[in-house]
Amino acid sequence: MIELITSGWHTSLQDNGRFGFQHLGIPEAGAMDQQSYRRANQILGNDMHCATLECMLQGPILKFWAATVVCVSGTIEKMYLNDIAVPKDTILTINSGDILKIGQLKAGVFAYLAVAGGFPTQEIFASRSQYLNITSNHKVKRGDKLPVNSLDLTFSQPGHYARIIPLPTSSTIQVIRGPEFDQLNQAKKAILFNHTHQLSSDLNRMGYRFEINKDLAAKEIISAPVIPGTMQLTPSGQLIALMRDAQTTGGYARILQLTPTSINQLAQKRAGSEVIFELID
């Protein structure tokens, strides 16, 4: 069992997502940065759908009530195990009674704590990702006690590091055309691709909003399906990148779609970051 001494800013259990229920209005959810999520699991030798603890900006302080092994990945440099600095992307051996302080992320937004065998919480619609109205809570809170698997000493030896491509940190974000892309005229397309766009401070698991650009605008559409990575443009000139917890339908023009890698890349950008969109075919 792992007890949350503090909860951090917004900490939740996330796996690769809840797929196949979009037509019922159930969002995908899942780890915001799937690449770092996979990395943490892979280093431990976990299956690729094991639930991890996703930490946003400020991580929690955890007390372990059982021996286990964990790995933290993502945009974090170090954390403290019993007050001793320990690195990320490494297997950490935990004894019962140990305290792991993940603390503040110095750069980026998300870090992932994977535990041997994943967190064995209840699966709901084929996923353990926390989401409002689907799981009983949408995040973990102080005092929560999370179940862990008893440590199997024969847990598979890792060594898959080389197979994990590091997440691009550049400000260039690759996109493909969205269904309403051609509602934009040439002048607007030029503004979209030849200028930088700045992230506003309105960033959460549902969507990342950009600062309003008065030279950009698109008419509202008749409500249509959207998925994580869909980029909407509002009539007032705001670009919104829909993220993992996005609703399943929306009424703004879907002008672009982020590639699977670019969703992860954008997820790790902070308020005020400037990005450039690069159209690929």
Binding site: Q22, H23, A224, P225, V226
Partner: peptide, 18 residues
């Protein structure tokens, strides 16, 4: 096919493989 979501005049098909 992983899922098909519909709108008034659109379908969004997601696939199990990229």
């Amino acid at each position: 096919i992983r899922d098909i979501a519909s709108g008034y005049q659109s379908l969004l098909v997601t696939f199990k493989n990229d």
